[in-house]
Design a protein around this nucleic acid. Sequence first.
DNA 1: GATAAAACATGACAAAAGTCAGGTTTACTG
DNA 2: CAGTAAACCTGACTTTTGTCATGTTTTATC
Lengths: 242, 242
Amino acid sequence: MKARPECLNCNVFDRSYFSDLENSDLEILSYEKSASFYKAGQIVFQEDGRAMGVYCLHSGKIKLYKVDTDGREQIIRFVTSGELFGYSSILGSRFNLITAEAIEDSVICFIDRSFFSDLILKYPGINKTLISSLGSMLNDAEDKIISLAHKQVRERLAEALLVLCRKFHPGGCKDNNVLQLSREDLANIVGSATETIIRLLSEFREEGLVEIQGRRIILRNTRKLKKLAGFEGIKSVPHASS
Amino acid sequence: MKARPECLNCNVFDRSYFSDLENSDLEILSYEKSASFYKAGQIVFQEDGRAMGVYCLHSGKIKLYKVDTDGREQIIRFVTSGELFGYSSILGSRFNLITAEAIEDSVICFIDRSFFSDLILKYPGINKTLISSLGSMLNDAEDKIISLAHKQVRERLAEALLVLCRKFHPGGCKDNNVLQLSREDLANIVGSATETIIRLLSEFREEGLVEIQGRRIILRNTRKLKKLAGFEGIKSVPHASS
DNA sequence: GATAAAACATGACAAAAGTCAGGTTTACTG
DNA sequence: CAGTAAACCTGACTTTTGTCATGTTTTATC
């Protein structure tokens, strides 16, 4: 387990939120925050649980999902290191609107809602960052609605592979990049049955789009994948927050 | 055509955004804004067009939609009188992320982006309203994702009827409330083919859930509709901003 | 109120994707 | 490194939904 991270020399957390903070306030933040270790598979917070504050992922990987009335989970987005998550409390909701689960061993800092509110009061610039983050998440969600409403699973899978590849590879998505996640998670992103995803991945492999090594999926032809996903020319790959 | 609305005695616009404004600023707002009349079917602004500012619907009804690569439209949400829309410019985007079209004759006030920014600077409370509006739209969009990913058209249609009923009837959705919109629009909300919607509406009629009078759809049994949509017990009908 | 255009309706068929059941491989743990 | 659980894979079948074609009703406009 790692040492407790200090905010002053944290080169990981989202500077766009805290870039205006004076050093003295960074020290207070460092003192006020708590940092915890979560093993892969552990729940960070549950939908409908009380919303206590915001979280900042120091290292690891988180999935955010909702569960429908039949108990099936739908992954809404992933969180990678440096990102803030758990906005419910800021949005005026007393309860979490989503469940957060670590999918890798993770170190997560927690900032109490009232302390974060005080920070916003002192640094109103945070509002702007917050608003544009929410805006881009909203836009991503709306694009996902289009995709679910009009595209078939084959296209949505290609889309998901590209979006995930970009999300998990900071340099952008390139050929031979590797994705490591279960077929079930993939199905819960795309919104389909696990069997359908397995079948389609086999097809993709036969067509030379991907290579499969156990649970590792290696993208072999991103150009064709983009074409399949409908990302031709006009629009670029949607921003990876979705 | 109506007279130009004045902000000072406008009993329609979203007070949660402007409730803190001093009368002098309301007068300036009244002067700065422009007000235009749009006939049903007219486009207010286009996706990918330049984002100039925010709009406030004085009277009428607006649909917001995106068009997919095949030219099929997906309705994202509706705007009813008093609501703000066209957030793109506030979210830091230079272009509209969505298309807005009047579906009834409408009077719409327009506030320039720079003037709105100045207002926010003077009244930071507006940020809070903005953040919670965006939050609730985001949550609605995520719920719609669940719905599209896991429910079948029959359930989604029941859900849409209830959500629209609530949206268009300020007192809440009650039996015998009337919905007036085309089967095609309904299909573009639910994310399905128009024929499927027509068939399902006929089934709903046979089952006594709705009554159909031409293009008017009268909800006859909201209790059963809620059951069908999966709104049983636990969750209430999602907020109508979706 | 006649006429045209749009919206609505229905049937037949095809395609897409889900479900269930049975196997095999992979990866984790003691 | 053996044993076990979880993940992955494949086939057969069913259901849901979309598409296309054609006809009817409603609505809007002159």
